[in-house]
């Protein structure tokens, strides 16, 4: 059992606050992805959980044990680093065995575990090589095998796929998901790649400016962003936002069209590009750029002077300069408070 509880953790570097009071609970065997742009504090949070960074305040609990005062090796964790950190002076075998040797496991056990994890990661034929003789993808496999060999309660991964080329990343992503699900460890995975986050996570914690903005299941984060930032960060292309004028009694006017919306206050209209379709009545969009993407076509347009994107079926013949009327799917419309930037339920 390795539930991870982060209580009120903050990290300041001099005058700069990398992490503002963060609270997060990660269930046993859960795959949690910390997602955000660079500088959002996701790596700092991971390093605090690992023990490579000391929090300025707050507590970290792993498996019911407070660990924030303990060195990394007493936390029952293993880690995969962004640049792999596969020791160049050791063979692949000794790299995978490193943690086991430090733990003074008997030689037979070391060999058994190295063999098993090497087979799992398909690198059993590389055991005698040095890291200088390996490709990036192979080094990545060694780094993962080294973590798995520890049979840890928690595996921490710091952008493990970011240095691989696109094709390899896709392949490793699927493989990691399978291997980690089987290993039954709790996983915390840091990435700035939303597709990676979506495809791997049980839950995603979207981070921005040192805060966790939303922590929820991938579809929830995608469909119901808790804040404007989440909508604008997740989704490719991201959500469209348009200003709305209150007409009273929960009626709102957006780009000359009337919608049902929040009962009172101020609000901003939001819709995902794929939740639009050409119709008789809808938002008047002036097409600027048309990008065919195979199954879909990405249309960049202007609505009420605002940039606006729509992903449409590719059988529509659209050309720049054309005027489209785009109807939003009613139950996919979201509203945000322009003041707090939070979603209005």
């Amino acid at each position: 059992m390795a539930e991870i509880v982060i209580k009120n953790v903050a990290k300041r570097f001099g005058a700069f606050t990398a992490l503002h009071s963060v609270d997060l609970t990660i269930a046993d065997q859960e795959f949690m992805v910390l997602l955000g742009a660079s500088g959002c504090g996701k790596t700092t949070l991971l390093r605090i959980i690992a023990g490579l960074e000391t929090p300025s305040q707050g507590e970290v609990w792993i498996g019911g044990r407070r660990v924030d005062h303990l060195p990394p090796r007493e936390r029952g964790i293993a880690m995969v680093f962004q640049n792999y950190a596969v020791f160049p002076h050791l063979t692949v075998f000794e790299n995978i065995a490193f943690g086991l040797r430090m733990a003074k496991l008997p030689q037979a056990e070391v060999e058994r575990r190295v063999k098993r994890t090497a087979e799992l990661m398909h690198i059993e034929q590389l055991l005698k090589r040095y890291s200088g003789e390996l490709s990036g993808g192979q080094r990545q496999r060694v780094a993962v095998a080294r973590a798995l060999a520890m049979e840890p309660d928690v595996i921490l991964m710091d952008e493990p796929l970011s240095n691989l080329d696109a094709l390899l990343r896709l392949e490793m992503r699927a493989e990691l998901k399978g291997v980690l699900a089987e290993s039954k460890t709790t996983t915390i995975y840091v990435t700035h790649d939303q597709v990676e986050a979506m495809s791997l996570a049980d839950r995603i914690s979207v981070m921005n400016g040192g805060y966790i903005v939303q922590a929820d299941r991938p579809t929830e984060v995608y469909r119901n962003p808790a804040a404007r930032f989440v909508g604008s960060f997740i989704g490719n292309p991201p959500m469209n936002f348009l200003p709305a004028q209150a007409q009273g009694a929960g009626r709102w006017q957006v780009a000359g069209l009337d919608f049902d919306g929040p009962a009172a206050g101020a609000a901003e209209f939001a819709i995902r590009p794929e939740d639009l379709h050409p119709a008789e009545a809808g938002l008047r969009a002036e097409v600027r750029v048309v990008e065919p993407l195979g199954p879909h076509v990405l249309v960049t347009a202007q609505v009420a002077g605002q940039p606006f994107r729509a992903v449409l079926e590719s059988d529509h013949q659209i050309s720049p300069g054309e005027i489209l009327t785009l109807a939003p799917i009613p139950d996919r419309i979201r509203w945000f408070d322009p003041e707090t930037q939070k979603a209005i339920a």
Binding site: A50, G51, L52, P71, P72, R73, I77, A78, M79, F81, Q82, N83, A85, F87, F98, G99, M102, A103, R146, M150
Partner: peptide, 13 residues
Amino acid sequence: PKEYNEAAEVFGA
């Protein structure tokens, strides 16, 4: 690179 030292630290050295 600092990561080697950190990796060693995480893996119990």
